[in-house]
Design a protein around this nucleic acid. Sequence first.
RNA 1: GGGCGGUUAGCUCAGCUGGUUAGAGCGCCUGCCUUACAAGCAGGAAGUCGGGGGUUCGAGUCCCUCACUGCCCACCA
Length: 932
Amino acid sequence: MPHDLPKAYDPTAIEDRWAEYWVREKLFAQPTPNTANQEERLDGQSPFTILLPPPNVTGRLHMGHMLNQTEMDILTRWRRMSGRRALWLPGTDHAGIATQMMVERQLAEEGTSRQKLGREAFVERVWEWKRHYGGAILDQMKRLGASVDWQREYFTMDDHLSVAVREAFVRLYEQELIYRGAYIVNWCPRCQTAISDLEVVYDEHKGHLWEIRYPVIDANGEDTGEFLTVATTRPETMLGDVAVAIHPEDERYLHLHGKKLRLPVMNREIPVILDEWVSRDFGTGAVKVTPAHDPNDFAIGERHHLPSINVMDDTAHINAEGGAYAGLDRYVARKRVVADLEEQGLLAAVKDYTNNVGHCDRCKTVVEPRLSTQWFVKIQPLADKAIAAVKPGPNGEKAIRFTPEQYEKTYLNWMENIHDWCISRQLWWGHRIPAWHCSTCHKITVARVDPTACAHCGSTQITQETDVLDTWFSSGLLPVSVFGWPNITAENRGGFDAFYPTSLLVTGFDILFFWVARMIMLGCWFAGDVPMPDGSSRSLADSVPFREVYIHALVRDANREKMSKTKGNVIDPIEIVKQYGTDAVRFTLASMASPGTDIAFNVARTEGYRAFANKIWNAARFLFMNVDRAAEIGIAVDPAALGSMPAVAAEAPLEERWIVAELHSTAKKVNQSLENYRYDDAANTIYQFFWGSFCDWYLEIVKLRLDFSETADKAATKAALTTLVSVFEAALRLLSPFMPFLTEEIWHAVYDEDPPAKSIALTRYPQAAETPADEAALAEMSLLQSLIVEVRTLRKEIGVEEKAVTPIELRIGTHLRPVVKENSAMVERLARVTEVRFADQITTGLSKHSTPDFDLAVVYERTVDVAAERERLTRDIAKYEKGLAAAERQLGNESFLAKAPAQVVEGLKKQESETRLLMEKARAALDALPRA
RNA sequence: GGGCGGUUAGCUCAGCUGGUUAGAGCGCCUGCCUUACAAGCAGGAAGUCGGGGGUUCGAGUCCCUCACUGCCCACCA
């Protein structure tokens, strides 16, 4: 028998092998059913579909990924083993800016640039990079054992997904939900592209508020000697000022309304205008208006029909509109402008001022709000649906349910205050916008197929838009596009019918708006048009991209600090995995993944779970050792006894009935916990069962039954061995979603390398029996456990050497004596007892222990530490008195007796009488001690 | 400026719709190489549940308030 496992568990020895095996054998491939075939569509297997949030193709695995993937893998493995048609779909995101940046950096090292290469060559270069280095993160995922369907791996720029992107764009354009125009956008001068509001991160920045005096001039353009002082945080933008606004009711300045000012530095005449938006108590109460460089100013400009003067180029250098400052970087220009103002006596004040400055999410460069012509999605109609999908409907049902629930509010709050979405990016890597500009009539042609002529005037002088789409536009479409949308035809709709809507999305809150919200908007919008398999129209509930969203927390370091490269506290999951094994790291994450709580990742805990893996490993060694010994005398466990939920005969030994009852209750709890995304509860429950109940108690007891001697009762030995192996095998299945490698290895060994399936992952997940638990077994075992523990404690207290065996004296109700008698061997072995002497009164020794069920003494000649004993008893008495007083107080309270449920009152009464008894016994024992 | 969390043992965290004497892991103390496992076994100590007030027969749990702390959103120059 190949049951020779090494003594210590070594994850590195087994994990690579299984990871490769799972991929090679395509174990988790989920074929697309043919839904034209009614039977195949309704084969009773409710699918469980889950999309992997596609990592950037440039990405490397970090702890957040590992948490995300561990959670998804646990749920997918669990659902699969529970009989669902499980599909976990992986892929990578082309990640426009990130990938382009990476390749550009490479080019820079080679002394060239994308501009030198030209667009076509550059894009080809990125593809080449992708083919060589892209998707390394998916290989890391394979190593972690993610049970995804690798046959379906996608890339967001794959042809069929690009078709979906184009269709979505064209359709929205036709529906007049996409428009192009010049507005203030967030411009990153380093990436040289517009970015969306979400891609701007704000940081507190200590800067200044400059107060600048704008001279008031008369009708002839001469200075009147009066000034209007404005305040600004960005003096350089004054080059583009076109007015100064004051509040319509501001008495201080009203007399200046209609007058003109001379814009310092530029010497341009600008008007003083009135606008409600101006806040009288901020700064000086007068605002310089720069429509091309500030969203508020832009709005004012619109209201007052003012021109917009863009004074900066794509790199945030001052352009020709900036007169003498042309060519200067924005911050150089700022200094120069301030210096010039000061020289001209126009700088009224410089005040320290802290404000929020927007930075590019990607490269952290300060974003420049800047007038620019971009493409936008008119988002409100999509948002309306996305709101309806999350709010409770008329029947109280929600089409999409968030866990933790609090994120629903966050989502709705954002969705209800949403702004139009800038979807164009001035990049080369991405889905190029399918719009063509006509140089003849200057109109735009948007088309599904590349046009050869302008749709408006027929001119062939057309050129394609150079912008590409925001990466999130394509990833937002994934739930529909990966299942074939828009080509949903009668013959070709199996994937969509079977797997859409997906069951669940598991992700971090950091991409709640970026991705989750966009998927909901786009999914509801486009899937809504796809008829149901029977041809009927699709409700909102069936249009959503997923029915549930589980948002997990952040993985922090052991000190609760956010992991970051600059702080140098990043824990590389691969490193930890190498050290402790994937299973231990997975179990760490799972056991700490309490919904809504960040995870402070502590390797001490991982060490603990490696020990857990080792524990199971050694339990397996123990089992195999006994299986082998049994084989020598012709006893073998029938494999038919494995693979299901173990059951035992009513007359089976107590420990067998007990461990089986425990297994069932564990399975029940674990299933319930997973149902509610309580990975932590599920993991802890299994841990407690495996280590606590199974190893610490059951294995120790069962040793008594594993008799392989000549005189053995072979039937009894075989029965014990069968329960042992079958409970262990079921427990392995219970654990396998959490620790897939270890359980796979041992499971194959249990079946002596001839398993009933290719993998433990393809077996059935343990489910508790419907029949009620064996309460008697649980109660009897609990009594014996407390007896054994009390003996051990007492032995320790009176200083019995570890090795010594002693008789005990036991006073216990006659109805409980049989339980002890029938299991005396258990008590003797586990508590190092030679003999249980039943007594009506404890006579031995000075030290005894009492519980509500029994009094106990250990028969052992040893001087008792009277002082220690007195201390212990005094402490106990104090504890009892306190408890008793509390109980009496409550029981004396008539409203408590009247209002509290009977069971609570009864429970308290029982506790009161038990405590009273224990207290009396403790007092008596204290009195019996010799005086000091 | 809005909104949402958190505060429970030395550390990291559980504690469901309020119900008997608040739990786990790690750490700590004590004793054991008991042939599955020293990555182990056995026993133990340790918490006025952030402060204050309220509701209730009963509050870690519900309400108010204060303090500290974290996060998200926001166009005040």
